[in-house]
Amino acid sequence: MKLQLTALLSLICMIAFGQKKSEKEEWKQLFNGKNLDGWDIKIRGNDLNDNFGNTFRVEDGKMVVRYDQYDDFKQKYGHIFYKGDFSYYRVVVEYRFVGEQAPKGEGWAWRNSGIMVQGQPATTMGKDQDFPISIEVQLLGGDGKKPRTTCNLCTPGTNVVMNGELKTQHCFNSTSKTYDGDQWVKAEVLVLGDSLIRHYANGEMVLEYNKPQMGGGNVSGNDPSLMVDGKLLDHGSISLQSESHPVEFRKVEILNLKGCMDAKATNFKSYYVKADNSACTYGKK
């Protein structure tokens, strides 16, 4: 009897161990470290995939934004879009600011870039459109003199809900530390459809809000027929920004959470806990 019980317990442990291994996180590298395959480029005033001034390029295994071929920035805001559509996910970017700002770049754009999530596709942007309709996770570098948080929120063509109230202002500061100089910073965004978005800076949660939706201003040159005020953004593109200051990205990766949702959950907080505990198979759906 003892022998049978021991064998049964061993079998249960083997099954449990096998399940745990199969449910490991499966991160996908969006940037392969070699080239820009799988990405689309849209720079204001230029056609899709016209990489004006070789703005977006790969150097030393990093995706970089450079302005050495610019005489005048001329508000040529640019974005590089991963060719995909996502709804529930965690995206991680490791970035740093370097060098000097492009000639005639706006003062507010000094050491300024962003991760755009739940955005419109690159193919639907107007030739003279400045920013995609999206949620912008604003990335900022410090000047060594005063606090300047990163992983903030800006809202080109969008609004969000915070603490149950619709917010229509353009930008919101996070609670992050200031990161001066050329140090690498890890920015992570948790996106759960049109329900919940959280920002993390170097592993610390620094901002949270709900119900990302179209509305407001702060975007120009877009097709007005695509702007539907109040439409919830439950899926969309992911892109990285060129706003006039050189920036480098050494990692861009995603953990697809689609398919992990507990259909019986009344809110997405339980969904997030479930995912953290590996209660579903990551990256499979």
Score class of each variant (00 low, 15 high):
Lys145Gly: 09
Gly193His: 01
Val161Gln: 04
Glu243Tyr: 02
Leu257Asp: 01
Pro147Leu: 03
Arg250Ala: 10
Tyr200Arg: 00
Gly221Tyr: 01
Ser176Asp: 05
Val185Leu: 08
Gln213Phe: 00
Leu226Pro: 04
Lys167Thr: 08
Lys258Pro: 05
Met214Arg: 07
Ser220His: 15
Asn152His: 05
Glu243Leu: 09
Ser242Arg: 02
Phe249Asn: 03
Trp184Tyr: 11
Leu190Gly: 02
Gly203Tyr: 09
Thr175Lys: 09
His170Pro: 10
Gly142Asn: 01
Asn218Trp: 15
Val160Gln: 06
Lys186Met: 13
Val185Ser: 02
His245Ser: 09
Val219Pro: 10
Glu208Ser: 15
Gly259Ala: 05
Ser244His: 07
Asn152Gly: 02
Asp180Val: 10
Pro212Trp: 00
Pro224Ser: 12
Asn159Lys: 12
Leu207Asn: 05
Thr158His: 06
Glu165Asp: 11
Glu208Arg: 13
Thr178Ala: 00
Leu196Arg: 15
Lys145Ala: 13
Leu139Ile: 13
Ser195Asn: 14
Glu208Leu: 12
Gly141Ser: 03
Met214Pro: 14
Val247Ser: 07
Lys231Arg: 14
Gly216Asp: 06
Met227Val: 15
Ser174Ala: 05
Gly230Tyr: 00
Asp180Trp: 00
Pro147Ala: 07
Glu188Ile: 04
Ser242Lys: 06
Gly230Glu: 02
Arg148Met: 12
Ser220Phe: 13
Gln169Val: 11
Pro246Thr: 14
Gly142Ser: 02
Ile238Trp: 01
Leu153Ser: 09
His170Ser: 14
Leu255Asn: 07
Leu139Pro: 02
Asn159Ser: 14
Ala201Pro: 10
Gly217Gln: 10
Leu166Ser: 11
Glu165Leu: 12
Ile238Phe: 06
Met214Asn: 04
Tyr179Val: 08
Glu243Val: 04
Pro212Arg: 05
Leu190Glu: 00
Gln241Met: 05
Glu204Asp: 15
Gln241Val: 06
Asn218Glu: 15
Ser237Lys: 01
Glu208Ile: 06
Gly215Met: 01
Val185Asn: 01
Thr155Gln: 15
Gly144Pro: 12
Asn222Asp: 14
Ser176His: 10
Ser239Glu: 08
Tyr209Arg: 06
Gln138Ser: 09
Gly164Arg: 03
Glu204Cys: 10
Ile197Trp: 03
Gly164Ala: 06
Val206Gln: 07
Gly181Thr: 06
Leu233Gln: 04
Leu257Gly: 07
Gly259Asn: 05
Gly230Arg: 01
Asn210Leu: 13
Met227Pro: 14
Ile254Ser: 02
Ser174Lys: 11
His199Thr: 03
Thr150Glu: 04
Ser244Ala: 09
Asp194Pro: 06
His170Arg: 14
Lys145His: 12
Thr178His: 03
Pro147Glu: 05
Glu248Gly: 12
Leu192Gly: 03
Lys186Phe: 12
Leu255Met: 08
His199Asn: 07
Asp223Gln: 12
Leu196Trp: 10
His170Cys: 14
Ile197Glu: 00
Glu248Trp: 01
Pro147Asn: 00
Ser237Ile: 02
Asn159Arg: 13
Asn222Ile: 11
Val161Glu: 10
